Amino acid sequence: MLNVSEIGIKFLGENVEEFKEGFKTLFARRYLPDVRESVEKPSIVIERFRGEEFRIFSATYDHMGVDEYKIESPKPSAYGNEAPIFFLLQAVARASAKVGRVVVTDSVAVYEDGEVVLFVGYPHTGKSTISVLALAKGLNVLSTENTVVEVKDSLRVVGGTEVLVYDPSVKHIYGVNVPHDSSTKSGYLIKDLKGEMRENILKKKPKVSKIVLLHAAFNCSGYSFSQMRGRKIKKTLWYFSTALLKGLDYYEPMPLHVPLNDKIKETLAKFLDVASSLDMIEAFGNHKSIFEALFGPVNEKV
């Protein structure tokens, strides 16, 4: 059985082990948070039938507390059959919300001095570059794309994606050098952040102290911050907290429209209420200028 951010997933059907392996690859782990083996009771059961294309032909929700899916699919693979990975991410987001956790999409979590600054931003607004700058400064990046937040009286980071993909331009533009493990077909660099130190920090469930809505670019100079309050916080974070649930993160042939039960609605409402009490700013400008205003100078040529 597979565990994705403490959500147990049981696979049924032919060649289960081969199919399951497709969710453990470096590519899959760019999107699926904390993929591990598991022997825990499943929250999701997926029965897979072989087929040439991916499709979901049955979904049963909350059956004895378990979400059950029947799918047709080849083995998950990068650039070939990516849809099962994003389907599983959506299923995990729903199962997580049922136990009081929100999978915040398009986010990175930077840990410093016992607390977390959570960056959210639409694609290509600088989150990965901020992560590289954090690594260059010696900070811990707890999540690189999808951050799992436990919702109680505070927001606490309990998991997230651990594979960072970033633009190599950051090296010569900002004078930093973070070692990488491999690269994508298009030349982006890949760094696997999985490690004991990260896992030990996550076990402590560090609190989110600040949320930053990021708008950064290489060709900008300087920076500016704008304080966010009230409805604007809730309106902004509604997208990032529900995009996976509502199928806004596209996969072929079409994402599911999953139902939101009372517990999921309660989790989302509390997430927005707690988040709106936190310090949240909108940040515009140059990545490095924004980062150093928040964390201090970056160590160059690391």
Rank of each mutant, 00 (worst) to 15 (best):
V170G: 10
D181T: 07
G138R: 04
V212W: 01
E292Q: 10
F54Y: 13
F49Q: 12
Y79R: 15
Y31P: 04
L272R: 02
S143C: 10
G13M: 13
I56C: 11
G222F: 02
L214M: 02
L118Q: 00
L272M: 07
V132G: 05
F19C: 10
I290T: 08
N140R: 01
I173C: 07
E72G: 08
S224I: 03
L142D: 06
M280I: 10
S183W: 06
D167F: 01
Y188E: 12
S226I: 11
V298F: 03
V45L: 06
V149F: 12
V163P: 11
A97Y: 05
V208N: 03
N3F: 05
I85S: 04
S43A: 14
P179W: 05
K98F: 01
P123V: 03
G8K: 06
T105C: 10
L32W: 11
F119W: 00
R30L: 06
L139G: 06
F19L: 08
R231F: 11
Y223W: 05
V120L: 00
A216H: 06
K171E: 15
Y111H: 11
F27S: 09
R55F: 12
H172V: 07
L202K: 00
I211M: 00
E72R: 11
T242N: 02
S73G: 10
A269S: 06
T236K: 00
V163M: 07
L133R: 01
K204R: 15
A91N: 12
Q90G: 07
